[in-house]
Each structure stands twice: as C-alpha cells, then as structure tokens.
C-alpha cells in the first residue's frame, strides 16, 4: 500500500466523520432550524464521493511491476527524515508548553537550540547557542518593543 492509497482512505474517512458530526449539530433556534447544516452536509457528501473516486483510482493503478511496488513501499518508509519530522513536532509541543511559563526569550532559546540540534547534529553547539540567543533577543525586541505584539515575559519580569 502506498501513502497515496492511505490518504484516499483518510479523505473518505474525514468525509464520513464530518457528515456524521453535521447530522449531530443542534437545530438552529433562529430562522430555519436546518439552515446551518445544509452547506456542511453538501461538503461532507461531496468529500465522500471524491474519496470513493480516489480509492477507485488507486485500486485501478495498483503497483504491478516490482519497481512500482518498491516505490509504493518507499513512500511509507520510516527513515531519518520521518524521525526528524516527529522530533520537530514534539519540539513544537514543548515550545507551546514552555512559552507562557518561562517567557518568550527563554522558551525560544530552548526551542531553537533543539531545532538546530535536529537539523545540524550536536557538533556546532556553541554556534547554535549563539544563533538562538541572537534570534530570541532580536525577535523579542522587534515584535514586543517595536511592533507592539506583546510577548509573554519570564517570571523575572524584565525579559
């Protein structure tokens, strides 16, 4: 099975779930009670149909030769690239958790250091720390001080 096949199933599944939750929506108390459901219902059913079309297309083009089968398998391979993507997402979640408690500058410093670690490995760590510090401070000044986008500060108050 290839990623494309899985995606066509996911799309169909989303269509089904969306249609189902549309039907579960409460009736409107102002105007026509079913009005808020009509447009979502059209969308849900349209996606279901498109999803089925996609699945049919996938089944028709099932890999036949060895080469095609290899390619399909490769699209689902779990290698260093996929590992890095997962790390990046986890790093983003950590960032979200730290952002308010310890303020913009420190959380960004940690986030950027970890992200540079993911991209470059641990060799140039000193350089990475320098980049993170400069970015965090510069971005804080630019956004918070200059552009008036108020960023959270650490419990130390001043940064």
């Amino acid at each position: 099975m290839s990623l494309s096949t899985i995606m066509s199933m996911v799309v169909t599944l989303i269509g089904a779930l969306y249609t189902f939750s549309t039907l579960m929506l409460p009736a409107a108390r102002i105007g026509n009670p079913t009005a808020p459901k009509v447009f979502p219902l059209i969308l849900g059913i349209a996606l279901l149909i498109l999803g089925f079309l996609l699945i049919i297309a996938e089944l028709r083009n099932l890999p036949k030769t060895e080469e095609e089968k290899k390619k399909a398998k490769a699209s689902l391979a779990f290698g260093p690239v996929e590992k890095n993507i997962i790390f990046t997402i986890l790093n983003g979640i950590l960032y979200a958790l730290l952002f308010n408690p310890i303020g913009y500058i420190f959380s960004t410093f940690i986030f950027l250091n970890l992200q540079l670690l993911i991209f470059r490995g641990k060799q140039k760590w000193l350089n990475s720390m320098l980049i993170s510090t400069i970015f965090a401070v510069f971005a804080f000044l630019l956004f918070n001080t200059f552009l008036g986008v108020f960023l959270p500060t650490s419990p130390l108050q001043f940064i």
Binding site: T88, F111, Q115, L116, I118
Partner: peptide, 13 residues
C-alpha cells in the same frame, strides 16, 4: 540547516 530552524521560529511568533 540554519535557515529552516529560524524560519520555523518565525512561523511560531
């Protein structure tokens, strides 16, 4: 390898 982490930090802010 340096540019993308910075772009990422910019997307968050």
């Amino acid at each position: 390898k340096i540019l993308y982490p910075i772009v990422l930090a910019l997307t968050f802010i």
